[in-house]
């Protein structure tokens, strides 16, 4: 019964969005594809594994707010995200917070008509924490990394009537950089109270950080800018100091131009 109710709600939500789109399109202006500032809100699922805290994946909810600024070839965004996940047995929670800042210099490699593709290097600064509410001397895991990523941006302007509806896709893959990690059985007490480090700054590369983040949006022009709807996937993984980590999140996103 609850499933049927949820489905009805989803249908209502979809119809509501469609109506908003149709209504806004009536007065819409074309989107300036070379200059964009957007604010996104994301809601989705999270799947987090950190073997420093637990051998098992925890599952739950992921929310994020992201600000994007795109000007010709310069792209940057900031993503603030939060997850609450629960262990498979359902008796322990973990809380994750993450702040990620990305800057990319993108160059046109293809630009013909309504389709364009850009690629370029991206610098990613990531700061995060994962807290397990039950653990004693290993209650949390800190994350800090500075990576050089490969990024690519593709845009296709779908034309319906005289209007343009940009479909945008952004992907980035970490290539090389440095990351913080405690050693396999090292306590934070050793690192911070005793100042005893042990391979805590790790050389990160595509082999030990096989991660990927991407976002697909469909932009609908409105009278004051645009509304974007789409998907954001963040698949972060790392294997540092024999500690295994992954954080997968699949999100529905809605964005507003600023």
């Amino acid at each position: 019964m609850r499933k049927i109710h949820r489905n009805i709600c989803l249908w209502r939500l979809t119809i509501f969005y469609c109506m908003v789109m149709i209504a806004t399109c009536v007065y819409a202006q074309d989107i300036n594809v070379n200059k964009q500032k957007n604010l996104y809100v994301a809601l989705g699922s999270a799947d987090i594994l950190d073997t420093y805290l637990s051998p098992f994946s925890y599952n739950g909810t992921h929310v994020a707010v992201s600000y994007e600024n795109f000007k010709k070839n310069d792209y940057y965004d900031g993503i603030l995200s939060f997850s609450k996940v629960t262990n498979p047995a359902g008796n322990v929670n973990e809380y994750a917070g993450d702040l990620r800042w990305r800057y990319a210099k993108l160059y046109d490699i293809f630009n013909k008509g309504d389709f364009s593709v850009k690629i370029g290097p991206m610098a990613v600064l990531d700061l995060g924490v994962l807290y397990n509410e039950r653990n004693g001397n290993n209650p949390a895991q800190g994350r800090f990394s500075l990576m050089a990523d490969f990024s690519s941006y593709a845009q296709y302007n779908l034309r319906i009537g005289k209007r343009k509806f940009p479909i945008r896709y952004l992907i980035d893959v970490p290539m090389i950089g440095a990351a913080f990690s405690p050693n396999y059985g090292q306590s934070y007490y050793e690192i911070f109270s005793m100042k005893k480090t042990d391979h805590n700054v790790v050389f990160a590369h595509v082999g030990n950080t096989p991660s990927l983040r991407h976002r697909l949006t469909f932009d609908v022009p409105t009278s004051k800018g645009s509304i974007s709807l789409g998907y954001m996937g963040i698949y972060d993984q790392s294997l540092y100091n024999n500690l295994r980590y992954h954080s997968y999140s699949h999100n529905f996103i809605i964005g507003f131009s600023l």
């Binding site: 073997t51 490699i109 690519s152 096989p210």
Partner: peptide
Amino acid sequence: VRKILCCVFATVLMLSACVDEEIPN
């Protein structure tokens, strides 16, 4: 473009190696 897209897909395929649980749940 094709070359670059191939490279991207190759990278994505490489990334399909998941970092997952070691101890069976």
